[in-house]
């Protein structure tokens, strides 16, 4: 059983929904990223997405774009991101780690070599933002052979036929994109969301987590009413950047994340 499915079973038994947190590898540094992920786990994150920075993140809003650019400027690479995963995994054995990136960096690494290296480093799953089911055959072959889940996204614009395709191919969970648009914190949760999540759930046994624009305990609470989990990214990335010089950074992250986690408990 994969770490992700173990985690979702545990949460179900406890009557909780999953809190998935996102950080960009290397922002502000590899060492801080390692510490942050451990802190996130302590604060109640049920899984962590680690972003491999890419020069042209066209699905990301200003927060994650800027974080990616900062990380690249510190010299972060795909291989160094896997080093971060390795260091975290050496200390945290049960936290599901999801790598999030775009297709070009892993394609450039070599899909087979990359899947092997990511699995060896201790990663559990991938989200490849610009890789749709139709183009994923090669990647799926190597990721599956190395025991890695691949999480695909369903968008509010997805037709019922496409939702079925994505629900079928996605493993680990299905990522429900809350709204049309790029990543980034927003003020509210779209009203049509529950219907989409319900439709996805009628086509897959995998959990459905919702992200894009989720930033407050209120958002988390309202989405937790119908989804299996929520993904919080940009607002956390912003907090980390804003407080990067603050000696209490880890404490501030604990406060923010534990507040979000509390909202996943019914």
């Amino acid at each position: 059983m994969s770490r992700l499915s173990t985690r979702f079973s545990e949460l179900k038994a406890k009557g909780e929904k999953a809190l998935v947190c996102f950080v960009t590898a290397g922002d502000p540094s590899a060492d801080v990223t390692v510490e942050l992920v451990k802190t996130l786990a302590r604060a109640g994150a049920d899984a962590v997405e680690i972003g491999i920075p890419f020069s042209d993140p066209l699905a990301d809003g200003p927060s994650i774009q800027a974080a990616s650019q900062r990380a690249l400027e510190t010299g972060m690479t795909t291989a160094k991101t896997l080093d971060i995963v390795r260091r975290i995994r050496a200390e945290v054995t049960d936290l599901p780690l999801i790598l999030m990136t775009y297709y070009n960096p892993i394609r450039c690494f070599g899909l087979e070599a990359y899947a092997k290296a990511a699995a060896e480093a201790g990663a559990d799953a991938h989200i490849v933002t610009d890789l749709t089911p139709e183009e994923s055959e090669d990647w799926k072959r190597y990721s599956a052979a190395n025991g890695l889940d691949t999480i695909f996204l369903v968008a509010p614009t997805s037709t019922e036929e496409r939702i079925r395709v994505v629900a079928e191919i996605s493993s680990g969970f299905v990522y429900g994109v809350s709204r049309t648009g790029v990543t980034g914190a927003r003020a509210d949760v779209p009203v049509e969301l529950q219907g989409i999540v319900d439709y996805i759930k009628s086509h897959t046994a995998e959990p459905v987590c919702v992200g894009f624009g989720v930033s407050s305990p209120d958002h988390v609470r309202s989405i937790s009413a119908f989804a299996d989990g929520v993904v919080v990214g940009s607002s956390l990335v912003d907090l980390i950047h804003r407080e990067r010089e603050n000696p209490n950074l880890q404490q501030l992250v604990i406060e923010y994340v534990s507040g979000l986690k509390a909202a996943t408990r019914a």
């Binding site: 066209l58 699905a59 297709y103 933002t129 610009d130 890789l131 749709t132 139709e134 183009e135 695909f152 996204l153 369903v154 968008a155 509010p156 614009t157 997805s158 037709t159 496409r162 994505v166 994109v177 049309t180 648009g181």
Partner: peptide, 22 residues
Amino acid sequence: SRGRFGAFGGRYVPETIIPALD
């Protein structure tokens, strides 16, 4: 039919715009 010119082309985009491309 998938937009391939040999090994090139295709569609590598966020899921949100796939229906618009269709």
